[in-house]
Simulated assay, not measured.
Amino acid sequence: MTEEHRRLEEARRRSAHWRRWGPYLSERQWGTVREDYSPGGTAWEYFPHDHARSRAYRWGEDGLAGISDNHQRLCFAPALWNGRDPILKERLFGLTGHQGNHGEDVKEYYFYLDSTPTHSYMRYLYKYPQRAYPYTELLEENARRDRRQPEYELLDTGVFADDRYFDVVVEYAKAGVDDLLVRIAVTNRGPEAAGLHVLPTLWFRNTWTWEPGTARPRLRAVSSRVGLSVVEAEHETLGRRWLVCDGAADLLFTENETNARRLWGVAGPTAYAKDAF
């Protein structure tokens, strides 16, 4: 019996919760019926990609190569910035059914490379351009084309010319049911040096806004031995968890709250909103 067979048997008997943590984090929560409260059922327009970085979700979260617990209370995913994009790369971008000349279509290159049945090991690859991501160009060119023409893809924009992109590989390995090791490896495929900011991000799904009286979870920096940076996550039902970072990292905090000022021009619940970075 292999170690994975042993984990599967323990999961079947419910003697060990090996599937508590897994790739349950959607790569796109925006523009879905899960978040649609429009009177006419116009999910694509009600919660567009442009709102996703600033507006708190209700029923789920999203991220690149992310994980969460099986009730999606606590989430983890890396965010990326090449120094040229107007926003962080935190989730997949694509066209809605009304924007694409062939309907709904993601405009990214990402690959699920490996995952065991208990998610004791997972590996994911994302290809991130070093040039500015052509959000507007993809929208405008696909809008000009009709259904008889081919789709205008990310590769067609020339953003990957001369192999100027990064391979971002994210790996997860479980040392125990609740002990996960994370490795984020970046390879520059371009002909010269280029900068990339990698922001491993830990956050709670916002449940307190929608359910009055819900205990509010919290994240805080805690002291640790030299050479480590630690964030403590405390949740009413999940208990305490810790994100331990190798090295003296700068820890940045904000709230998973909607930036109402940016979206609708009115005051929101806090100045420290979801899109603070």
Rank of each mutant, 00 (worst) to 15 (best):
G247N: 01
F76C: 00
G100L: 07
V168Y: 02
R19N: 02
R164C: 14
G22V: 03
R7M: 04
T214H: 14
V186C: 03
Q130M: 14
W242P: 00
S68Y: 10
T254R: 15
D275Q: 03
R218P: 00
E45P: 00
R34E: 11
G239Y: 15
R84F: 05
G94H: 09
P23L: 06
P212S: 11
R84Q: 11
Y24C: 10
L199C: 11
E108D: 12
A56D: 07
A16D: 05
E141V: 10
A43L: 06
D36R: 07
A173G: 11
N101I: 03
H98D: 13
R205L: 13
C75F: 00
R144D: 00
R53I: 00
D62Y: 03
V244M: 08
V266T: 15
L252C: 07
D250Y: 13
G66H: 05
P200Q: 06
A65F: 05
R183Y: 01
V226A: 09
P212E: 13
Q130K: 06
G190Q: 01
Y57S: 12
T258L: 05
N188Y: 14
Y112P: 10
V106F: 12
L25F: 07
T187H: 14
S38Y: 14
Y135M: 00
S15L: 14
T2F: 09
P134K: 00
D178P: 09
L113Q: 14
S68P: 04
F111D: 11
Y133H: 08
C75T: 08
R19D: 01
